[in-house]
Write a protein that binds this DNA or RNA. Structure first.
Lengths: 209, 209
DNA sequence: ACGCTAAGCGGACTACTGTCCATATTGCAA
DNA sequence: TTGCAATATGGACAGTAGTCCGCTTAGCGT
């Protein structure tokens, strides 16, 4: 407790889709914004698109954009949300080895591969969603969900593992920025990254002293 | 390989201290800026200080500030540089167990504890140094040095370890943002974090299949 | 001491993020 | 249909990061 101040609390922003009591115009605008942002991000790259540009392309004012999504990373998160939901569905209720039924080590490895696939496809969107303030990576419901899942699997693997610690280690090894660094600077390919992750999980599972 | 673009290349900025051919006025200004920034950061917290404020407190123009330090994170890095140098000295040439002489597992554990101490003391400065663009964490000479050190130790521990992969895993587990998250949100204390790190290193060392 | 040149300097300037509030619109109730 | 309260809207606004370029100054050779 000292020089640290991480913004981790989830601000109560209406980031996620489909509020049931959403006014018709609000819904229309939300969809226009998401469509415009998705297009612009894909066309020009996430970092090169200003919020003004998104608002203009969507035909709404800046205030609307910020009201709905809070900030730049909130917008990115909202775009990712759908894909994420699909993946979460798979590891919570889907088929083994990702879903319930397989041994926990298998499930954890499959989870890692799923996240790596997600990163490979949506890496810069994920990074945009985590950029901004310190600790953004840990804020928000997605990290919490992933963390709880990994936490549970680690406990299943071996209750002696300090799951509070190792859950974040596992997730840190599935970080989008690091993936980019490995690809561009270190020269690791996806196979090697997956294989490294498998070894990491095996290591953690093996020595729960 | 696709939606990823991480800014990792080290821009050739004169961030580090003591250019031998530094003009007297430049040196004077550099020192004034560093002193002013250090004070302001300590007084108000890293995030609450604008670059303008630093420039004004130092009695120099904004152009000078940016010329010398490139951007906000460069300024933070420069402030950290001295402490960092000291630590690097210790693990490269200092006494065991941090320095050469101790078995590599011991050295790695000691290294981790050193970094954790650094984070405990200078956490938000470190975070400021890494904030900004995606991949900032991996850019710069400090990460490279740490990485090389860990890489070497891992090879010493067991050449079968994929050191290219695990070096970054080890460093990811010594991340300042994560430390803040652990402290504030998970409720881990420093002892538990150190102990977790020790277990991680042991795990990696143990199962080099 | 003097003048030259390369380097440093600083503040005006642009672009962007995020806030705020007067106005417009919606959905409901009478 | 009409009036009303709640909510959404959008553009003006303030604050900050980072760039640029004409001016100044240090350091050096004579």
């Amino acid at each position: 407790m000292d020089g640290l101040a991480v913004a981790t609390g989830q601000a109560g922003l209406p980031v996620l889709g489909g509020d049931p009591c959403e006014r018709a115009d609000a819904k229309r605008n939300r969809e226009k914004i998401l469509a415009a942002a998705e297009t612009l991000f894909a066309e020009r790259g996430t970092e090169a698109v200003s919020m003004d540009a998104v608002a203009e392309a969507a035909g709404v004012g800046k205030g609307t954009l910020y009201r709905r999504f809070g900030d730049r990373s909130g917008l990115a998160r909202a775009i990712l949300d759908e894909r994420d939901r699909e993946f979460q569905e798979k590891f919570i209720r889907g088929e083994p080895p990702l879903g319930p039924g397989a041994p926990p080590v298998e499930r954890l490895v499959a989870f890692g591969e799923g996240v790596i696939d997600l990163i490979a496809d949506y890496g810069d969107l994920i990074m945009a969603a985590q950029l901004g303030k310190a600790g953004a990576r840990f804020a928000g419901p997605v990290y919490a969900t992933y963390r709880m899942h990994v936490h549970g699997l680690l406990r299943d693997i071996d209750p002696r593992i300090d799951a509070d610690y190792f859950a974040d280690i596992v997730l840190a090894s599935l970080n989008a920025e690091m993936y980019g660094f490995w690809k561009s600077d270190v020269g690791l390919d996806k196979t090697r990254i997956s294989s490294g992750f498998r070894q990491l999980v095996t290591s953690i599972a093996g020595t729960a002293a």
